[in-house]
Amino acid sequence: MNTSTIIITGPTASGKTARAVALARRIGGEIISADSRQIYRGMDIGTGKDMAEYGDVAVHLVDIAPAGYKYNLFEYLRDATAAEADIISRGRRPIVCGGTGLYIESLLKGLRLPQVPPDEQLRRQLSGKSLEELTHILASMKTLHNVTDVDTPQRAIRAIEIQRWYELHPEAHGGECDPEPARSLIIGVEIDREARRKRIENRLRNRIDHEGMIEEVKGLLDSGISPDDLIYYGLEYKFVTLYLTGRISREEMFVQLLIAIHQFAKRQMTWFRGMERRGFTIHWLPYDLEAEEFTDRIVSLTAEQQ
């Protein structure tokens, strides 16, 4: 990752996108998404794309794959690195914005991965195991994996599959990192737990009652995407699909989904704290700063780093 690239991250519902857009307008930047689900076309409300929020600011790695596809870390590193190089070549400033800690940390480390093929035999062996059992297996493995997004058995199985491939191919060593990765400026949008919980609940109610999130998922199912493929994406797409296929009630959908999003935000913060322990400096700025002051502070930090 280039030293001129700025990272804006933080937990879900902290307002990262608005901050990144304001900064991009200030410094002549373009945004590279670091959100593992905004990649998919047609998955807009549940992933919180808010495309209108970008306005005239260019954004990369949003809507680049069809819903139902299983985009992976190998592809993200390839595509994000290419987008960063393209932005810099045009004299613009890359701003990576999102809450998928694995994507961000892997970019910062300059991680390069081989493409891991599916292991159908292993998938058959693991099929039928509960998410708790799979998570326990995964917790005993050492390869970097995206625990923040592993909330379905399918994702856990894929993570185990990747680790098993590395065990069989020790020459890969879990991917290679740049010996001296660039020290990009990392900004974290800080929000206290209670404010975060309120924003998450209000946002969820609005998406269900006013924005049409249930209708969005129904449209995806009607288009031919299988329920299992949508459940794979977790969170909104998991619980709304369970509701639409009659496995849970509407009230159960809301309550279980709200709990899952709170847990997801907690896992995100655990990842970011882990990054700090692993040597990354994250400059935390309050979520409720005025936009101009928030941007001023980033510009000031950028000048200090040069």
Rank of each mutant, 00 (worst) to 15 (best):
2 N>L: 11
8 I>L: 14
10 G>Q: 03
16 K>C: 05
20 A>N: 01
20 A>V: 01
24 A>I: 00
28 G>I: 03
32 I>R: 02
33 S>N: 13
33 S>H: 04
47 T>G: 06
50 D>P: 00
52 A>F: 02
59 V>K: 06
61 L>E: 02
67 A>P: 06
69 Y>H: 15
76 Y>I: 06
82 A>E: 14
83 A>F: 06
86 D>E: 15
94 P>E: 07
97 C>G: 02
98 G>F: 11
100 T>Y: 10
103 Y>W: 02
109 K>M: 15
110 G>K: 09
113 L>K: 07
118 P>A: 14
120 E>D: 13
120 E>K: 13
121 Q>F: 08
123 R>V: 05
125 Q>Y: 05
126 L>V: 06
129 K>Y: 10
135 T>C: 13
136 H>Q: 13
139 A>G: 13
143 T>H: 12
149 D>S: 14
150 V>N: 05
151 D>V: 09
151 D>L: 07
152 T>A: 04
154 Q>L: 10
158 R>Q: 06
164 R>K: 14
164 R>S: 10
167 E>D: 14
168 L>M: 14
169 H>K: 04
170 P>K: 09
171 E>W: 12
176 E>F: 15
179 P>D: 03
179 P>L: 02
179 P>Q: 01
182 A>W: 00
185 L>Q: 05
187 I>R: 01
195 A>I: 09
195 A>K: 13
195 A>M: 14
197 R>K: 15
200 I>N: 01
211 E>L: 13
221 L>A: 03
231 I>W: 02
239 F>V: 01
240 V>D: 08
241 T>Y: 10
248 I>L: 05
248 I>H: 03
249 S>Q: 04
250 R>F: 13
255 V>C: 00
258 L>M: 04
261 I>M: 09
261 I>L: 12
272 F>Y: 15
273 R>F: 07
276 E>W: 08
277 R>H: 12
278 R>Q: 14
284 W>M: 08
284 W>P: 10
288 D>R: 09
289 L>R: 11
291 A>F: 00
296 D>S: 11
297 R>W: 09
299 V>S: 08
299 V>F: 02
299 V>K: 01
299 V>Q: 04
303 A>V: 14
